[in-house]
Amino acid sequence: MTSAFVVGDRFRKKVSNLLEQPDSSLSEELRTKLGDLLERNGQIILPFSIARQLKQYLQDEGHPFYLHELLEDSSLHLPEFVKPPRNPELVARLEIIKARLANEEYNKMTRNVNNQEMNRNGTLAEFGQQVRSAKAVIVTVFNFLVTIIATFACSYIGSQYLFTETTARVISAVIATSVVGLAELYVLVRTMEGEFGEP
């Protein structure tokens, strides 16, 4: 908070003239303070207490100028702000809070990252799931083919008791194989839908 003025040339001239007057009724204390101020080189800093005493003197003596006229080219003296030292306890607590917030932010950023990542195409768990899915499809297709072949063979051999001609035996085997193949194809499609997660 400011408590002084930085006075200009107008103040110097007027106060110098006032001090040079032999009949002035300035008190010795005020005369000494003002004289000390004017003798300084560089900036003259006038404390508020001296300014109040000077104002009172000017009012009491009825001088033709006022204090605000003396201070027209002056400015307020703003002392340099001295930053108070920080409390070490507070600094330690702030560091802990900063570290906690940084850790939470890091966890939020990395919560969907899997540390078992094999490469950028997927994780080991996804690769294992794909292998199991492919294995199930291969087994199902192989089962379909074995069933078709076995049905044809059984129908062809079993039809010899009903038909004597080879053509009739082949036709009956193809018909039986088609029926079983369609049923097996239905099961295969349902299995494939289950593997790929379709309804």
Results as ranks from 00 to 15, higher is better:
S3V: 06
S3K: 09
A4H: 06
V7H: 01
V7E: 01
D9M: 09
K13P: 00
L18Y: 06
L26D: 01
L26W: 01
L30V: 06
T32R: 12
K33V: 12
G35P: 01
G35I: 06
L37H: 05
E39N: 08
N41E: 15
Q43Y: 11
Q43L: 14
I45M: 01
F48A: 04
L54N: 02
L54E: 04
Q56S: 13
Q56G: 07
L58E: 02
D60S: 10
E61S: 14
H63V: 04
P64C: 00
Y66W: 06
E69P: 03
E69L: 07
L70Y: 03
S74W: 04
S74F: 05
H77P: 00
F81T: 07
V82M: 01
K83E: 15
R86D: 07
R86K: 09
L90I: 08
L90R: 09
L94N: 12
E95P: 02
K98V: 08
L101W: 05
L101E: 07
N103W: 11
E105D: 10
K108C: 00
T110K: 01
R111A: 05
N112E: 08
N115Q: 10
M118G: 09
N121E: 11
N121S: 12
G122M: 07
G122Y: 05
L124F: 14
L124C: 07
L124K: 06
A125M: 13
Q130T: 11
V131H: 03
R132Q: 12
A134F: 13
V137L: 12
V137G: 06
I138P: 00
T140Y: 05
F142R: 15
N143C: 08
N143F: 06
T151E: 03
F152C: 06
A153C: 07
S155G: 15
I157L: 13
S159K: 02
Q160A: 15
Q160M: 12
Q160P: 00
L162F: 12
L162W: 08
F163R: 01
E165C: 07
E165R: 10
T167S: 14
A168N: 12
R169W: 03
V170H: 07
A173L: 05
V180D: 05
L182S: 05
L182E: 12
L185I: 08
Y186N: 12
V187Y: 14
M192F: 15
E193C: 07
E195F: 07
F196D: 03
G197S: 03
P199G: 12
